[in-house]
């Protein structure tokens, strides 16, 4: 349903604002994804710490890349935001649950 009826906000309609918000999301939101998902992967993988960290760093960068691509392809700003927020929240929840702290 959301694919057929995307939810636009007034922010979407202002060209320069739309672009700027997406750039901010891509710069900081994707970075947050890299850190959060990377850390979550590092502590959940069942490998020795060194190997888990290496995998986590590599996968974290890939996640950051995908986040950037998503931010600029999402139809609406809300879509862009939610696409970042859900994995970030999941990763943060995992981190909190497993270590008692988020970073």
């Amino acid at each position: 349903m959301i694919l057929v009826n995307p939810i636009y906000t007034p922010l979407d309609r202002i060209g320069w604002l739309n672009t700027t918000i997406r750039c901010v999301l891509a710069l900081f939101g994707a970075y947050a994804i890299a850190i959060l998902m990377g850390s979550a992967i590092a502590i959940t993988l069942a490998m020795p710490a060194k190997d888990a960290t290496m995998s986590a760093i590599m996968l974290g960068f890939v996640a950051q890349l995908l986040a950037v691509l998503w931010v600029f392809h999402a139809r609406t700003l809300i879509g862009a935001f939610i696409g970042l927020a859900i994995p970030a929240a999941a990763a943060a929840a995992t981190l909190y649950w497993l270590t008692g702290a988020i970073v």
């Binding site: 990377g38 850390s39 979550a40 502590i43 960290t53 986590a56 760093i57 960068f61």
Partner: peptide
């Protein structure tokens, strides 16, 4: 990867109780 320590040191430290030097 070379400069990961500059950009994402927290990920390096995640599995080492927050200390990237362990990695």
């Amino acid at each position: 990867l070379f400069l990961a320590g500059q950009l994402v040191p927290m990920v390096a430290g995640a599995a080492y109780n927050g200390d990237p030097r362990g990695f």
